[in-house]
Design a protein around this nucleic acid. Structure first.
Length: 739
DNA sequence: CGAAAGGCTCTTTTT
DNA sequence: GAGCCTTTCG
């Protein structure tokens, strides 16, 4: 196959420019991923570069996997020798191999977000700071921001002098201490420590620089300063650094992605070749124009004109509804209409929203109408409580110094070791500069010793523990000792069984809400673990732990399943669908209210909207609703400013409610098409039920061919009924509906 | 010690 | 409306 034949001139230029730095500015739908894959293939097949010398970096595991598959097709076996992965995975590999030089134990554990938060809370506690006054999340964010810019606690001291900054510095310092005590690193450390390693050990840097002759970075607009430094270091020798990105699709500044990297690139590499991929292969002309109308209102932006040879396509539909429920319903109606016309199937459709909470109204409606959907997001597999519990056991077996894991599972399932005991352990650990686990060992051991012999002179000021507690601690110690011994003998899945059996985890979990489902998750985890059974037990354990810390999604988005996709705008980046609905185009939702005070954040909201619009291939629907209840309270929001930025001739608007009736019209304003044979009721109607007596309709939700009513009866209270089945008659209003 | 009950806050998300 | 944290009671 000719690697260049299928490329347009700009793409071809990007592929062929193999010597020196290259900046590829790739508009949405411009074939960016293809360009990267073909560039690698070109290097290997036509330029004779050994794949061992090529590194391609992505942001997500999914992107890395897809790139791997693509290159597997293009290169076959040779693709195996490429270095392909996320920034974090690549850094973890480097640090396991060479981190000793900066005092990092090669068996370090990697703490995720939740673990980090626990550590921050612990730091606050130790510093006697009130977590209500200093929100752990905010501190975490500030610390992460510092790390993403390579700022140490020491640097921080010189940086700012507000009181909050002083608090951040102190927490940061303590947090760092706690991490190193547990021989743990957080995600930011993976990057930061790699940069430090290279900075302080030129001979190690030289090893990597010599190996990686060609480096490619995808989604460059999402890199932060540390990531940029890292690439700069690695590419320091050959300068064959190719970065691909689109400033207009930068939507992760809140994760400290820094758009200035693109500017720095042209400054640090003045010889860089800049290639613009402006031809769009995805969307209709109309959709592209709408996108352009939206994005051109951003001030901090280099204008770039995208174009397409695709057809004009239909105009964009704006639907204005009364409530989020009605909005969801019009999405369903529209999807059914499109499917009825043929040519479109469920999996071609996606509904996108700003915040996850919006998915609820959509799910309800899809469920009621029996339209299959797949929700992207929600709690991720490795974040589920039961999974994290089991992993904490594994981690503690692997590394008894891991205080966070110990804290997590010392009393899970409950074994009589409560808050007070834990505080005791913590202070003992601090006093002896030991891990919690060592403190626990010692505490339980002391008591056992003092039971046999004469009570020794108590060398510590600490009070001895009550026997009941000591027994509980000794029990836990014995449990762990046994598991640690087993871990050297048994396969990984065998070890998992041991954990489950000795902790009686099954009984524990089946007692809880959704116990069955949670147990199945654990069985799923076991089946993942059994993939490591061939390895030596200790190697299997560390490989497995590495995988679960750096991989987030086990349950892939099932692309086969014929169902509508419900997804946040953020997650939709990189995807495309023939039919796209964006819901909640209201001030306060999109743009989100938090961005009102800050023009830069507002520009990011606009980019987010742009990302959503440019996912659409054939048809785009923009929806807004007059009222919306989010987080309890209900508000009336004006239409999104983004809607006003679209040229009117590109749009056709459908209004489903009238302002004058707005207090009465709700989801019922659009009766479902098949409901004519049943009694049609609306909110506020008075009814009589043969058994329950008189009542008022509080709510009515149309389903495919019925209505689901919520009725408040005078005598028996609130009931939910189906209009077709309930013996109801409509009666005259004889008392006032309290509104 | 541990279950149960009330108060508080609320983006976006990958590693 | 839900999840998390603190408080309270058995």
């Amino acid at each position: 196959m000719d690697i260049l034949a299928t490329l347009n001139p700009a793409q071809r230029e990007a592929v062929e420019a193999i010597a020196g730095p290259v900046l590829i500015l790739a508009g949405p739908g411009s074939g960016k991923t293809r360009v990267i894959a073909h560039r690698v293939a070109y290097l290997v097949k036509l330029c004779g570069v050994n794949p061992h010398h090529i590194m391609a970096v992505t942001f997500t595991n999914k992107a890395a996997r897809e790139m791997g598959e693509r290159l597997g097709q293009l290169l076959g076996e040779a693709a195996e020798a490429l270095t392909l992965g996320t920034f974090h995975a690549i850094c973890a590999r480097i640090l396991r191999r060479d981190g000793k030089a900066i005092g990092l134990d090669s068996s370090f554990v990697i703490y995720d977000d939740e673990d980090q938060l626990i550590l921050i809370k612990q730091a606050l506690e130790e510093l006697n700071l009130d977590p209500k006054q200093y929100a752990p999340r905010a501190l975490h964010s500030a610390i992460s921001a510092a790390k993403s810019r390579l700022i140490s606690p020491e640097d921080y001291a010189q940086l700012g002098n507000s009181y909050f900054e002083e608090v951040v510095r102190r927490v940061y310092q303590r947090y760092r201490g706690l991490l190193s005590q547990g021989q743990a690193v957080d995600f930011d450390d993976l990057l930061m420590k790699a940069v430090q390693l290279f900075r302080d050990h030129p001979q190690i840097l030289n090893k990597y620089q010599s190996r990686y002759v060609h480096i490619l970075v995808d989604e460059f607009q999402d890199t932060n300063i540390v990531q940029y430094m890292l690439m700069k270091q690695m590419a320091g020798k050959y300068r064959n650094l190719c970065v691909v990105g689109d400033p207009d699709q930068s939507i992760y500044s809140w994760r400290f992605a820094d758009l200035r990297n693109i500017l720095s690139f042209e400054k640090d590499y003045p010889e860089a070749k800049v290639v613009l991929l402006a031809q769009n292969y995805r969307s209709t002309k109309t959709i592209l124009e709408v996108a352009s109308d939206i994005i051109s209102a951003n001030v901090q932006r280099k204008p770039k004109k995208l174009w397409t040879e695709n057809e004009d396509g239909d105009s964009v539909t704006v639907i204005e509804s009364y409530s989020a429920e009605e909005e969801a319903q019009s999405v369903v109606n529209e999807i059914e209409k499109l499917i009825g016309q043929g040519q479109v199937s469920l999996k071609d459709c996606a509904v996108m929203y700003r915040v996850n909470a919006q998915s609820r109204a959509l799910e309800d409606t899809f469920m009621r109408y029996g339209v299959p959907y797949k929700l992207v997001g929600g709690t991720r597999f490795y974040q589920r409580r039961e999974i994290k519990d089991i992993i904490a056991y594994l981690r503690l077996i692997h590394k008894p110094q891991d205080n966070v894991s110990l804290t997590r599972i010392i009393n899970v399932p409950a074994r009589g070791i409560g808050q007070r005991t834990l505080i005791q352990l913590k202070s003992r650990a601090r006093a002896h500069d030991a891990s919690f686990f060592e403190a626990l060992k010692q505490a339980s051991h002391n008591v056992i010793a003092s039971q046999g012999c004469e009570p020794k002179a108590r060398q510590e000021a600490q009070p001895s523990l009550p026997p009941r507690i000591a027994r509980a601690l000794a029990g836990f110690d014995a449990l762990m000792a046994n598991l640690i011994a087993q871990s050297r003998e048994r396969s990984l899945s065998g070890l998992l069984d041991e954990i489950l059996q000795h902790t009686r985890y099954r009984e524990y979990i089946l007692d809880k809400e959704d116990g069955e489902e949670r147990w199945e998750n654990i069985m799923e985890l076991k089946s993942v673990a059994s993939e490591y059974d061939e390895l030596e037990p200790e190697e299997a354990l560390s490989a497995f732990l590495e995988k679960v810390s750096l991989v987030s999604d086990i349950d892939e988005l099932d692309e086969q399943a014929n169902a509508v996709t419900l997804i946040t705008l953020h997650k939709a980046k990189g995807l495309e669908f023939p039919i796209v609905f964006i819901v909640g185009l209201e001030e306060g939702i999109l743009p989100y209210s938090k961005s009102f005070g800050d023009p830069e954040e507002m520009e990011e909201e606009r980019r987010l909207c742009y990302v959503g619009i440019t996912r659409a291939k054939k048809r785009l629907y923009l929806l807004r609703s007059y009222r919306r209840s989010l987080f309890g309270g209900s508000t009336a929001n004006p239409p999104s400013r983004f809607l006003q930025d679209i040229s009117p001739q590109l749009v056709s608007t459908r209004r489903l409610w009238q302002e004058s009736l707005s207090s009465l019209v709700s989801a019922c304003s659009q009766p479902s098409p098949l409901s004519s044979n049943t009694l049609t009721l609306k909110v506020g109607d008075h009814v009589r039920h043969s058994k329950f007596g008189r009542g008022i309709v509080m709510n009515c939700l149309p389903t495919r061919d019925d209505q689901e009513l919520t009725v408040a009866f005078e005598e028996v209270g609130v009931k939910k009924l189906l209009a077709s089945l309930a013996p109801l008659e409509k009666i005259e209003k004889d008392f006032d509906f309290p509104s």
